[in-house]
Write a protein that binds this DNA or RNA. Sequence first.
DNA 1: TGGTTATACGGTATTGATACCGTATACGAT
DNA 2: ATCGTATACGGTATCAATACCGTATAACCA
Lengths: 186, 186
Amino acid sequence: MDDLTEKMAQAFDAAPIGMAVSHHRVLSICNTSFAEMLGYDRPDLLGQSFRILYPSHAEFDRVRDIGLKAMEEHGSYSDERMMRRKDGVPVWCRFRARTLTPDDPLAHLVMSFAPIRDQLDGAQLTKREREVLSGLSRGMTSKEIGRELGLSPRTIEDVRARLLRKFEVKNTSELLSRMSYAQPRN
Amino acid sequence: MDDLTEKMAQAFDAAPIGMAVSHHRVLSICNTSFAEMLGYDRPDLLGQSFRILYPSHAEFDRVRDIGLKAMEEHGSYSDERMMRRKDGVPVWCRFRARTLTPDDPLAHLVMSFAPIRDQLDGAQLTKREREVLSGLSRGMTSKEIGRELGLSPRTIEDVRARLLRKFEVKNTSELLSRMSYAQPRN
DNA sequence: TGGTTATACGGTATTGATACCGTATACGAT
DNA sequence: ATCGTATACGGTATCAATACCGTATAACCA
């Protein structure tokens, strides 16, 4: 068999970004990163509907038509969307898709999924950490964030320090370059 | 030959994101998106050094060691960096890499490249600004960036100040959160 | 030719960030 | 029940960042 083909397949599998192929919204193949990102063993995913990877049936329906027109015209589409891990934890992703069948885009899709908060293997953010991160991304000082949250600036500094340790970065700038704005949730 | 292998190779090729494999900084294979993103015909890229894809030899040297330690430890690395199209136009990318040879990370790398945006809020970055931004996103201080670029720390502070004015942000953290690819453009 | 901008560097002054030291409560897991 | 972690706060010490003051050169543009 073709050596080049084998190398490309290996590259697909080892890619540092989640990748998957679907036919009419059924996953036919995916790579290791994709399965890991969503907390599955790969064999459990193959042949499954993408339904199980979205937070709800409504969301699954909603995203179906999104980007259809763009793909009919340009063959590709990109947005940011929420996926659902096996354990139920939502993952906010940069989603990219290219169709190999522009007349019927969903018939054969190649997709990539990049978690927006990467470097985040298992480490998830607490509510406080998200609140503080939100302030930091808006350029606020610890003092200002403390005022906003009704806390001592010292406490904000504690949370910052914890974030720096957690993500193994040297300072807040590096932290924010690794993470995107994290919307505070409850 | 294996049908699955062929499908994975096809997915690699048609991926909606630039992908490439290198051995010791020489490109061995890449997909269509990668060649398109950088303005080349794919055959012209295969076997080439990655040198031609960076803005300068200095930049090519500089990025070599970046992320080596992370890859030795975790097998993967990600940052944002400037690539150079065939026509000389710089492209700001989200770069991700996974090594298949953790003992010698550069021996066998699988990479993905996602263009962040074509224009940064209409404002163009100068070469200096890009170099400084690169250091900042890696958590370096002005002093450290100055050393890396052979400049006075004071000059780095000037460039930082210019960046803060240009993007109308309060500090470096807000700057980097805006430069992140996941950020909504204003 | 003058105006603007980028580059590069010096000084000083103030604020902010970060790293330590410490205490204390709360909560979940083993 | 003890361990680990998150939370919350206090202090001090040091370094970094930012904002000003200044000068100077080079490039480009109207």
